[in-house]
Nucleic acid binder design. Structure first.
Lengths: 226, 226
DNA sequence: TCTTAATGTTACAGAAATATTACAAATTAA
DNA sequence: TTAATTTGTAATATTTCTGTAACATTAAGA
């Protein structure tokens, strides 16, 4: 899980291309085809980054942008604006609307990917870091390895993603629904109790003799990494 | 695979000559005849080195160069500038644009080849090294031989390239897609399961009695050299 | 203390991913 | 040309992972 990205863009073909590729890269992606709905869904989804079309059927990208910046919860949500050629690039660039970067259509996916990584690295390094570390726990995303106090730990794919997820925001408590939404592939239906089982498996794997428990149960709320 | 080289140059005859010879040398080569398209394709192609013409029909080589240096993903992409005689060599030489080397047209392929190797050796030694070594495994690119603990091992061409690929970035996990993309010739369509079979063949060849397995399967992700 | 809801634990069957094998087609060497 | 090697694929076997259900335990309020 390399973070959550929300897309507001009315050209379905672009959305499809971008969404598919981002998912292949390990991002969790959700999208909306217009501004008003997009705003609502975005606030539910809580992305790490927003890809926002400049020209939308209802609101303009700028309006969406302003709305977001007014909301204290999303004041610092990184935004990359998607613009068609000729849409007054300079204007956008100099804009006070608080866009973090912009990219001109048509763009290659690699170009976009590069910009996304750059913006995320600035705003939220953990989302794209190669190594996630918390206390004596280390997860290497490149080598796909996990260590506790330098002892390597074998994890199944789901447990790996689960731990990766917790490591991005240690101490934060996540509900089962939130965990499901980001750790499991889209559109999969699993019982929320299934998570308990995976938590148990993860605990069993990362707990080593004499070291403290790393996953905390918060009754009636969910789980967190300590 | 000695690395990927991208060429931006508008004289088709030069492109043809250089591309053909570089491919014969084992590089993967792609090219574009102008600056704007070149930039896009380059970012898709992700080369290890760029050969860049100083005078292009649309952008100048310098513009291309600056664009590349501004992109954090390609900040350190080695660039060799191709210039016609008389194009103010001193200017180029002293330039801040971040060119790694330059060569004056007309040049012999050997001259160019030497510079490419030199630049790559500085920036990314493994890409051009004659010998790739990891633990007791040695691959000699010149003689096309592979040794495990000094015992020579016979590999088929595909297994050789596969091992070469893994040796450039040991420990890193590659997906089947990534392996296909770089180990197989361009535009070839093979089932991704085919890789499993080649992995098996490679394993069978490089595993010797009593020594540890060198290729690691990472379920749901791919393979890595240990 | 008792009750109840939430979480922990276990075992297991089906699913999914990978390993292995065999073979025919393609390529290369002789 | 023939023989030998290499390649890709499909079929089959094996391994590992997943989700669920059933039962056990715990926490917290009545």
């Amino acid at each position: 899980m390399k973070g959550k990205i929300f897309i507001i863009e009315d050209e379905a073909s672009i959305v499809q291309l971008v969404q598919h590729n981002l998912e292949k890269e390990g991002f969790v992606v959700s999208s909306s085809l217009n501004g008003n709905e997009g705003l609502k869904e975005l606030k539910k989804f809580e992305p790490n980054l927003l890809l926002l079309d400049w020209m939308l059927p209802d609101l303009s990208g700028i309006d969406v942008c302003k709305n977001i910046r007014r909301d204290s919860n999303f004041k610092s949500l990184p935004i990359i604006m998607l613009t068609a050629k000729g849409e007054e690039e300079d204007k956008i660039k100099g804009l006070e609307s608080g866009v973090d970067d912009y990219i001109t259509k048509p763009f290659s996916f690699n170009e976009l990917h590069a910009r996304i990584k750059a913006v995320l690295r600035r705003s939220d390094p953990k989302v794209v870091a190669n190594e996630l570390i918390y206390e004596d726990l280390k997860l290497d995303r490149i080598e796909k390895r996990v260590f506790r106090s330098d002892n390597e730990i074998q994890l199944g794919p789901t447990e790996f993603r689960l731990l990766e997820f917790f490591l991005i925001n240690p101490k934060r408590v996540y509900s089962r629904d939130q965990i499901l939404e980001t750790v499991w592939p889209n559109n999969v239906n699993v019982e929320s109790r299934t998570i308990d089982v995976h938590i148990r498996r993860l605990r069993q794997s990362i707990n080593i003799e004499g070291k403290k428990e790393l996953i905390r149960t918060v009754r009636s709320s969910g789980y967190s990494l300590i």
